[in-house]
Amino acid sequence: MMMRRIGSMIGRDLKASTREFLTVWVLVAPFVLALVIRGFVPAVGGAGINLVVTSDLGADLTAALRQYANVEVVPDRAALERRVLLVDDVAGVVRDTGAGGGGGSGALLVVLQGNEQEESRELPGLILATILGEEQVQITERSLGRQASPIRPYMAGMLALSAALFGGIIMGFAIIEDKTAGTMSALGVSPLSSTEYIAGRATLGMSLAVIMTFASLYIMGAAPFDPLQVLSLTVSGALLAVTLGFIIGSVANNPIEAIGTFKFGFMPFWIIPVLGLVVPQAYQFTLYWMPTYWIFFGYREIFLNQAGWGEVGPYAATAFGVSLLFFAVSWRLLRRRLTLRG
């Protein structure tokens, strides 16, 4: 009986969601995110230096430069200087034709803005010398055969966390809509118990979180990975997201409060893992309280090193423990505030 009621709550949510084109969007949003990341990762990996050249530089030299840098071609020196002065780091390469008032030696000249990072200052000259000068040393290449970009594990970790968060949010906001639309009271006069209500909502939130995590990881192209390892962390992520969803649902009574609560919960959810990357070792312990720290670095192990259970296991266990603690602490608040009747 209880299972049937929980089941029909979930069914109602799914029906309500799919009957509206725009709600489907909520479910699709994380996948759009995954696609954006998929496009973003190689772009970062390809970040080198940017050059801008005038069209009279010659096709051969321009083609040679393209092997080293992103090259834009502009018609004249004035356009080149305008481009160099734009906000990003771009160095110019021109033939000196005396535009600066000098004699115009015809020699190649590197045009800089002055605030470039060191690579953009030094490398253009070295590239030209390598192309035009003599080989100084014989260089051979060897590859370790690691195809994944170094930022991919971090992006994958962040994506997995956010996708889980979506599941929690959808659930939290469904609760608020129950409150504002008055359907909470309608459920209150049905035999549904508060516990069943919470269980129904949680089941939906958890499943959504897990499904969304996996789907967005595959869309992003994070595969291959061990699904069981990922699941071991996703369970904690989903539990945490659902907890956050319940906190939002029980604390907030209207959309504005909901967004405020969400913004509050949102900050540690994202910031703590990022801080984990920059905070010195000695202070890392200040971040241990937040489950996302353990989940994120657990994901990093999986996606970075194709780690074994020996590495992932401790993260998964700690993450689950801390998430459970989070849930337990929140539970008291939830049971008191989130009741269908009085």
């Binding site: 990996g45 390809g46 080198g48 230096i49 092997q67 080293y68 840098a69 992103n70 490398l123 590239i127 040393v137 014989q138 260089i139 051979t140 290449e141 060897r142 590859s143 370790l144 055969g145 690691r146 195809q147 994944a148 970009s149 170094p150």
Partner: peptide, 18 residues
């Protein structure tokens, strides 16, 4: 006289030339 550069494998052609 000779330098052997070992890459991870994900670096782009441009990065290697640079």
């Amino acid at each position: 006289e000779r330098i052997e550069v070992t890459y991870q494998g994900w670096e782009t052609e441009k990065t290697r030339r640079l």
